[in-house]
Nucleic acid binder design. Structure first.
Lengths: 224, 224
DNA sequence: GTCAACAATCTTGTATACAAGATCTGTTGG
DNA sequence: CCAACAGATCTTGTATACAAGATTGTTGAC
């Protein structure tokens, strides 16, 4: 074997989970993954442990690894944490944003706008993520930046289900606009409040969809 | 082997790091640890990966695992994140605290008071940690609770150096008192601001001590 | 005397082997 | 016909073996 396998495996699996190729609740078989990636179980296990630490999968001792399926409570709680983190990021960013951060944010916002114009929901996903990531970066605090990114990724599989709500993309973009205005005005308090609400609204929208998801999951469980 | 080794190993190493038996910057030798715990390298490696994910150690590829030694910048950034998290916890706790949370918080606060009365800095450490943990718990949000605990543990090795500052213990206790007042009054805004300041003050006090620590570390590096 | 290149040694990363717990299945008894 | 149990099978958790990169110490040239 040439180099290090574990990082590659972790990224590949992370991608599969975040992109939805691996569904929440699905079991990850070590030997199967080992065969698929052409490596032994050892680096697979190490990658799984890392994914478990970042909250994307759950390892149940002697039972195996499962893509995390957040229940309603945990999902709501996670969105609440995300909302608080985003609010903190917005507050700090408003105080500290440098010129290059401003430019990056404007660019990300424009990309969101383009997706809205085109009515392209698929393009809005990554543009939206990049917009939020630009705010994290604008805090100038790499630790906060990293934590926010980690949580963003952990919630990504769920966000995916959500922008299909009619007119949600347009509403989201309008909220981004309002956040940007506050950020550029240097008003941390308002920016924080708008960011918090923006995320919490997503979380709440979710609960409705979650009910459907749960029902579907249970139906699948009964059927299987 | 009987049961699962990895969790035991992780906890033991975590303890060694948090308690300061393993110094920041120190290298962790896999075979040495394996011999010490009477297991093979495999579970040791898995425990190290978990510790790396929780931020207590850093794994440099092909180089080994090292107890994280935060530089001035990272330390300040980590304290800033902690401050934001604590502020969020205080705000949510003020809004939601149940009777049992109130009781637990009062008890933890009393324990801090006892340590102050006795002038026992060693007893104040865990009492202080318990007080903060009681606030996290009072949010009723287990995800936030868990994240706050994780970060608290990661910063513990550094906090250890800090309460030796003259009268810091008394000042810390007075700040706790002020936070409790706001929490019990249900004033989330004030509680959040006080909690944030409380943590940031710790972080800032640190920078002075850090200068000394860095100087010492560099001296050691030169000497060794 | 200092620096650079090389070899011996050590450590990590990965593969494979094996033991023990979990799951599944087929059978038996009610 | 269903429930419970015993054996077989599968999967995980750990140990060990081996290969490749990193470290260290030595030697030789300048």
């Amino acid at each position: 074997m040439r180099g290090e396998q574990t990082p590659r495996l972790r990224e590949a699996l992370e991608n599969d989970i975040v992109s939805g190729r691996l569904r929440p609740g699905q079991r990850l078989d070590e030997v199967g993954l080992a065969a698929r990636f052409g490596v032994s179980r050892t680096p697979i296990r190490e990658a799984l442990i890392q994914l478990s630490a970042s909250g994307l999968i759950e390892i149940r001792p002697r039972r195996g690894a499962f893509v995390v399926l957040l229940g309603p409570r945990e999902l709501l709680e996670s969105f609440e944490l995300m909302a608080e983190l985003e609010a903190a990021c917005a507050r700090l960013a408003a105080q500290r944003m440098a010129a290059c951060d401003r430019a990056a944010l404007a660019e990300a916002h424009a990309a969101c706008g383009a997706a809205v114009e085109a009515g392209d929901v698929c393009a809005y996903y990554p543009a939206n993520a990049a917009f939020h990531a630009a705010i994290y970066a604008a805090t100038g605090n790499r630790v906060i930046h990293g934590e926010a990114l980690r949580l963003q990724r952990a919630l990504q599989p769920y966000r995916r289900l959500q922008l299909n709500v009619p007119r949600r993309m347009e509403a989201s973009f309008a909220e981004h606009e309002a956040i940007m205005v506050a950020l550029c005005a240097g008003d941390g308090i308002v920016a924080a409040e708008r960011a918090r609400t923006h995320v919490l609204v997503q979380g709440e929208r979710f609960m409705a969809l979650l009910a459907a998801l749960q029902a579907e999951t249970e139906a699948l469980a009964e059927a299987g």
